[in-house]
Simulated scan of single mutants.
Amino acid sequence: MNAQTDIFPKITDDGLEQLRRRTGKLITGSLEPWCHEATRDNIRHYAHGIGDDNPLWCDPDYAAKSRFGTIVAPPSFLFACDRIVSGYVGGLSGVHAMWAGADWTWHEPVLRNDEITTEARLKDLIEHQTRFAGRAIQQIYHVDFFKQDGTKVAEADSWCFRTDRDEARERGTKYKEVKARAPEPYTDAQLEAFYDLYAKEEVRGSTPRYWEDVSEGDDLPKMAKGPMTVTGFIAYAQGWGGLYIRANKLNWRQITAHPGLGIKNRFGVPDCPERVHWEDEFAHMVGTPGAYDYGPERCSWLTHHMTNWMGDDGFLRKASCKIRRHNPVGDMLVISGKVTRKFVEYGRHLVEIEQAAHNQHDELSVLGSGVVELPSRAG
């Protein structure tokens, strides 16, 4: 894109100071979550939105025979139950927000028809200098998740990076080489090789993976995600809900209440910033190579990788996701993982896993890790 006059609001010291005053305060009046309850359909829509066909999430007859006795929500389903953990950040009106990572801890499974409520607080603001957009602000929130009896089922620290759109578009250097690449359509042979990972994907399911049978250094099976398409991003939004996807009167109400939110499209109509995920034109305006995947979506792919491996009798205790670059339309992603530690803590038999995902150019897309509790042959 040719250089042009800066058109978007900027990060300011005054805006940061006003935002910093909110630190530690309970957030009230935030947007209604996409899912209040973990219904059968809500769980299935989320699982299918990340390409996860585990029958424990989706098949009532299968799940009835599990140790849970009913359908279970995949761990990352909780993204659909709170807007803050998903990247709905306050303050710095009109400044772009990109979801960039989370540290999750799960205490209890979320079962079919559990009702979820949350409490969220701004935890910290950290300034960075980046190749993507120069000055950037990491905006971190802490969110607690409770079910209907008051039991805390999970908690998470989640963060977005706030960036100047004009700076990223005009002067950012992170994607200089990527933007210069000519599109190269995949050959049938390339697609067939990639799809072979889908054909071989194993859902451990009802076959227990015992702690004693796992060794440090074991590799997890590689997992494919992609090739990235707008269709795939929309499939995720159907299960997750999207932050700003609203129609007609509800959209008008949203952009009226938040004047910095609506950004005019080529027809002069204010439209939501979330369209960076399906509209190349706007994605280029914020400095990215093209329409790209959702951050919580990618985090959910990493947890999917671990739940496939651990089986129905395992439990994902912790997971961390740190996004390193965008996945624009056309990218293929391969997730790899390795067992790095085995240990016992408070009577739980635990395994620590490190993950990484690279695209077709072997560029690092995301780093992840997790702690999985496995059944023990000792009981």
Rank of each mutant, 00 (worst) to 15 (best):
S369N: 15
C160L: 01
G29T: 12
P375L: 14
K318Y: 06
G94I: 00
A168K: 00
D124I: 01
V334K: 11
G15E: 01
E119D: 06
S300M: 10
S93K: 13
Q139G: 06
K318H: 14
T130H: 11
A182C: 02
T118H: 13
T173H: 07
A357F: 09
S320L: 03
K222T: 10
S76L: 13
V89N: 13
W159E: 05
Y198D: 15
R135P: 10
D331R: 11
G205D: 12
T151L: 04
G290W: 09
V371K: 05
F267C: 03
Y292I: 11
F77S: 05
T231P: 03
V371M: 01
C35F: 05
P259H: 00
P109R: 10
G134T: 08
D144P: 01
D313W: 12
N248T: 06
L125N: 02
G29N: 10
H277Q: 09
T256R: 08
F194H: 13
M1W: 08
G241S: 03
E170F: 14
Q139Y: 01
G101H: 12
A156K: 07
E155P: 02
A193I: 04
G49V: 09
D6Q: 06
M98A: 14
T229C: 08
G330L: 09
R162P: 09
M310H: 07
D149F: 02
D13V: 03
R165N: 12
K342A: 00
T173A: 11
V85K: 07
D312N: 13
N54F: 14
L367N: 08
K10L: 06
V286N: 00
T307K: 01
H305P: 10
D61S: 13
T231A: 15
C58N: 10
S376G: 06
L220I: 01
V339K: 06
T28I: 07
S66Y: 12
E37V: 11
D144Q: 14
G370I: 05
V286Y: 07
K225H: 09
H142D: 10
H277E: 04
A47V: 11
E119I: 03
V85S: 15
C35I: 12
R246H: 14
A64C: 04
L316G: 05
P9S: 03
L333W: 03
S320A: 03
E170P: 00
G379A: 09
V339S: 08
S86G: 15
A120W: 02
Y346R: 15
M332F: 07
G51S: 04
T207G: 00
G24C: 04
